[in-house]
């Protein structure tokens, strides 16, 4: 799979990348047989970027099928090239696909996906009572505006989804003679 998803990086995400605080971009791509709900295969690529304000470089940790690597990029363009594009990312062994079968590739790109554990801790804190000093057995008739500021905690700072047209598996071309 080769895909570019640079539009995930808008002005806000660009500011995050330059903030000095780690920013994580994650691509997940699922392969489905057309009409099926369970994926046949999953591939992923993760990129963790930290800007070093003293050396003025981006330190990038790249994780994808085949292993991890640490690289240094002197500018944002280098970060985008490594982290907002996927070049020949392996999805599934071709031999596992049915000849003539129709398949769909569905992708999700997230910036700073929050781990489930962190989400739990955040939600507990955000939804905690503040100054509750009375209890009663009944609810008010028209209820109460409970937790007005319970922030809607999303799974990521930004998300991008894409889906391909159905792909038909054709016989591989004969080897050159």
């Amino acid at each position: 799979m080769t895909v570019a998803y640079r539009d995930i990086v808008d002005a806000e995400i660009e500011a995050k990348l330059k903030s000095g605080i780690p920013t994580v971009l994650v691509l997940r791509a699922y392969l489905f047989e057309e009409g099926a709900t369970n994926p046949l295969a999953l591939t992923a690529k993760s990129c963790r970027v930290v800007f070093d304000p003293w050396d003025e470089v981006f330190r990038v940790q790249l994780t994808q099928p085949g292993g991890s690597s640490n690289v240094v990029s002197p500018n944002l363009e280098g970060v985008l090239r490594r982290c907002a594009e996927a070049q020949k990312l392996a999805v599934i062994d071709r031999s596992k696909l049915k000849l003539g079968g129709r398949y769909v590739l569905s992708g999700l790109v997230e910036v700073n996906p929050v781990s489930q554990e962190i989400i739990e801790r955040i939600k507990k804190w955000v939804s905690r009572p503040t100054g509750a000093t009375t209890i009663g057995a009944g609810d008010a008739l028209f209820g109460s505006f409970v937790g007005l500021f319970a922030a809607r905690i999303g799974a990521a700072d930004r998300e991008l989804k894409f889906k391909t047209q159905p792909l038909v598996v054709t016989p591989p071309p004969p080897p050159p003679t």
Binding site: A15, K16, K18, S19, G20, I21, P53, V114, I118, R121, I122, W125, V126, L148, F149, A150, A151, I153
Partner: peptide
């Protein structure tokens, strides 16, 4: 990250972000 959400949880702010210089 937790402290960012705590600041959001106060209800005083629409947006909170951290950066280093």
């Amino acid at each position: 990250e937790l402290s960012r959400y705590r600041l959001l949880g106060t209800g005083f702010f629409q947006k909170v972000s951290y950066s280093l210089r």
